[in-house]
Computed example of a mutant assay.
Amino acid sequence: MVSVVRVRRSMVLGLALTLMLAGCATNTTARDGGGSGSAAGSDVGESPSPTPTLSGIVDADAEALAQSWLDDAVVPPGAVATETKPANFLSYYGWPCQPMVERTGYWTVEASSVTQVAKWMQQHPTGGLMVTTPGPIPEGTDYDEVTVGNAPAQDSLEGIAYTIRKSAEGVAIRAEIGVKPAGSVCPEGNWGGPGQG
């Protein structure tokens, strides 16, 4: 009986800690404008509210970096930024470190394929980052959805997970951006970085 109570108490404490950590992370949608890079180039609107860290202190550097990655996101020529989700994306990247400063951006590209957009994005990472998803996309393959990761280093747990999804008008792009603020805690083990699962 004692061991059952201890197990239940451990489970409750573990659940409470998980909920507390999950509540610290926020997800903010893109403002009008989108990335500069080789695409639309218009400015992104006001910055979202700061994300508190575990200690309750706002990390201005992490906030600024996340916003700069959104502002400078490199998307193909002709991509148009949108404030609303332009497609039903099948996959999402779960940031293993918590809390994270997060941003999300959306774009659409007309008269293109997922393969064309993904290949272009593999050759044009967002400034200061590198493409971390493995291997080229095979020629002649028609995908419904592909992910391209951009990160500061191959084993980084922060960066951008770009998801390219087929849509009725052509292709939709989503950027999931995550930056580790001061006090962020990463679990032990081998974790795939942005766009790596």
Results as ranks from 00 to 15, higher is better:
residue 182 A to F: 13
residue 176 E to W: 06
residue 181 P to A: 09
residue 124 H to A: 09
residue 111 A to I: 01
residue 15 L to T: 15
residue 98 Q to D: 04
residue 84 T to Q: 06
residue 69 W to L: 15
residue 102 E to M: 15
residue 138 P to F: 04
residue 191 W to H: 12
residue 31 R to K: 14
residue 11 M to N: 14
residue 139 E to K: 02
residue 145 E to N: 01
residue 41 G to C: 11
residue 75 V to W: 05
residue 115 T to H: 02
residue 88 N to Y: 03
residue 175 A to K: 00
residue 162 Y to I: 04
residue 22 A to H: 10
residue 135 G to S: 07
residue 92 Y to A: 14
residue 31 R to V: 10
residue 172 A to M: 01
residue 11 M to H: 13
residue 17 L to S: 13
residue 168 A to K: 06
residue 127 G to H: 12
residue 115 T to S: 14
residue 119 K to T: 12
residue 122 Q to H: 09
residue 154 Q to W: 06
residue 45 G to P: 09
residue 194 P to T: 10
residue 140 G to M: 05
residue 142 D to H: 06
residue 196 Q to K: 06
residue 133 T to M: 08
residue 175 A to I: 05
residue 146 V to R: 01
residue 48 P to C: 10
residue 135 G to H: 02
residue 21 L to M: 13
residue 141 T to L: 15
residue 195 G to C: 10
residue 76 P to I: 15
residue 175 A to E: 04
residue 107 W to H: 03
residue 191 W to S: 00
residue 19 L to E: 06
residue 37 G to F: 06
residue 137 I to D: 02
residue 17 L to A: 13
residue 101 V to C: 05
residue 154 Q to Y: 09
residue 165 R to K: 10
residue 141 T to P: 00
residue 182 A to E: 15
residue 45 G to A: 14
residue 44 V to N: 05
residue 66 A to H: 05
residue 152 P to R: 11
residue 191 W to P: 01
residue 92 Y to Q: 14
residue 110 E to V: 03
residue 82 T to P: 01
residue 86 P to E: 04
residue 69 W to D: 05
residue 107 W to F: 00
residue 105 G to S: 10
residue 159 G to F: 07
residue 179 V to K: 08
residue 153 A to F: 09
residue 177 I to T: 09
residue 142 D to M: 10
residue 18 T to E: 06
residue 112 S to D: 11
residue 82 T to N: 03
residue 70 L to I: 09
residue 126 T to S: 13
residue 38 S to F: 07
residue 79 A to K: 01
residue 183 G to C: 12
residue 181 P to N: 09
residue 147 T to C: 00
residue 143 Y to L: 12
residue 34 G to T: 03
residue 21 L to A: 11
residue 60 A to P: 04
residue 25 A to T: 15
residue 26 T to I: 11
residue 117 V to H: 03
residue 44 V to P: 00
residue 129 L to I: 12
residue 89 F to N: 04
residue 161 A to M: 04
residue 49 S to D: 14
residue 190 N to S: 13
